[in-house]
């Protein structure tokens, strides 16, 4: 499908990434590239292996097989360097509700060894960028779900990563908060050229945000391309992404996933409400 040479400027190159849990293969031979100016989306239902893929790319989970280079470093050989150059907003909540938004970012800035003299400036900047300057000193437990998500994005940007990983960034958000998060992601890409890898099970989100998408189905990447390209390949006028998905996966996105997977997604949703 694609050449084995990574395009110049690739910030993520995954080759045959595989992860097994016991005898179950959650991610099966996944390979793709993301270049520096793109939003790349992994689209798939609950349980497709999106989170497992992201966890491997962010060094939180070791691949059973396969390799990847992220931000110019090999996952296996230099995980600490990979971590230094990426930002990650997990599917679960990574902001601490017991302290303020400012304090959440301040501890991140310190862990990324941003010099003391510049820490305040960087934290303030990142909070302002996500429109949280006015609530910086409030406890996060008083934030709305949308504010928490934006705080987590700010937290993942405080060290100016070259790639930002977002795992289901808008799950559990109401339409207004979702729109706000979408706008921020768009702006990040347009203004700062940060490469973004996100996962979603919302067609609309993939369509709206992503330059390229990979369709993940039961751990396998069954199609990769620009949404328009994928739709055109169906040879049908005005094809939707939904139809693209059904074509490659053989079922609708809502039908996938187990009780446990759905449960996990819903728990996040509940906490953000």
């Amino acid at each position: 499908m694609r050449s084995s040479e990574a395009p110049p400027g690739a910030v993520v190159e995954a080759r045959g990434l595989t992860r097994e849990f016991g005898s179950f293969t959650a991610v099966d031979q996944v390979g793709f590239e993301v270049t520096g100016d793109q939003v790349f989306g992994l689209l798939g239902p609950n349980g497709a292996g999106k989170t497992t893929t992201i966890k491997m790319l962010t060094t939180l989970l070791r691949p059973s097989r396969g390799r990847a280079r992220v931000a110019g470093f090999d996952l296996e050989e230099a995980p600490a360097e990979v971590r230094r150059h990426i930002g990650y907003v997990p599917q679960l909540i990574s902001a601490d509700a017991q302290v303020t938004g400012y304090e959440n970012l301040w501890v991140s800035a310190g862990l990324y060894s941003i010099p003391r003299a510049r820490r305040r400036e960087r934290v303030t900047e990142a909070l302002a960028l996500l429109g949280l300057g006015g609530v910086a000193d409030q406890l996060v437990k008083n934030y709305s779900g949308g504010m928490i998500r934006r705080l987590e994005i700010a937290q993942a940007l405080v060290h100016r990563p070259s790639v930002l990983f977002l795992d289901e960034p808008t799950v559990g958000l109401d339409p207004v908060a979702r729109e706000a998060v979408w706008e921020q992601i768009d702006r990040l890409k347009r203004t700062y050229g940060t490469a973004i890898v996100l996962t979603t099970h919302y067609m609309e989100e993939a369509d709206r945000l992503c330059d390229r998408i990979g369709i993940l189905h039961r751990g396998q990447l069954v199609a990769v391309g620009a949404p328009a390209e994928l739709k055109a390949q169906l040879g049908k006028e005005n094809a939707t992404l939904q139809e693209v998905f059904v074509h490659y996966a053989g079922e609708e996105v809502e039908l996938g996933g187990s009780y446990r997977d759905a449960g996990r997604t819903r728990r996040v949703a509940a906490r953000l409400e």
């Binding site: 939180l60 971590r83 909540i93 990574s94 862990l111 990324y112």
Partner: peptide
């Protein structure tokens, strides 16, 4: 909650 990933994903 997931808070721990914030620490583990840092360098």
């Amino acid at each position: 909650l997931g808070i721990i990933t914030k620490f583990l994903v840092s360098p």
